[in-house]
Nucleic acid binder design. Structure first.
Length: 135
DNA sequence: GCCAACGTTGGC
DNA sequence: GCCAACGTTGGC
């Protein structure tokens, strides 16, 4: 099982909206590294949903419900999307500050490479965020 | 609002 | 192929 983290500015697409809609096409990724990560996602993989810029925190968990396909927002064959479905909400959002202060999470991709919007997580990183968010 | 990090573009 | 200029992201 592979674990992931995706970022969204809540003003552009929020966790609240995702929760209400139940699923969404994750489109608009225009960065090769992020695109490569989208292509690696397998159906059933779990994906943390992080709010950037405002309310900077992991909000909840999504599940990959459809593997990559052409991004419907463009005809350019380089760019792909996946479909994500609502899975579970964290009891307490896990803030960037909390992650920076945590010895397991201090070297997470989110902190090391702050501009990447789709990234893999190690199992122990995923588990640590869940335990902080559900504890 | 500022700025660091970093990806992209285009001239040479 | 190099690199300066420029644009974007995202934390503060």
């Amino acid at each position: 099982m592979q674990y992931w983290l995706v970022k969204s500015e809540p003003g552009a697409y929020s966790w609240e909206r995702f929760k209400k809609e139940g699923k969404t096409v994750w489109d608009g990724v225009r960065n090769y590294q992020a695109r490569n990560n989208l292509k690696e996602m397998k159906k059933g993989n779990l994906v943390l949903f992080y709010h950037s810029n405002e309310g900077m925190a992991v909000q909840g968990i999504a599940k990959v419900s459809r593997e990559f396909f052409q991004d419907p927002g463009t005809d350019d064959a380089r760019w792909v999307s996946v479909e994500l479905s609502y899975y579970q909400e964290l009891k307490h959002p896990v803030s960037l500050q909390q992650m920076k202060a945590d010895s397991i999470l201090e070297n997470i991709g989110l902190i090391r490479q702050s501009r990447l919007s789709v990234m893999p997580l190690k199992v122990e990183e995923f588990d640590r965020i869940i335990s902080l968010g559900m504890g």
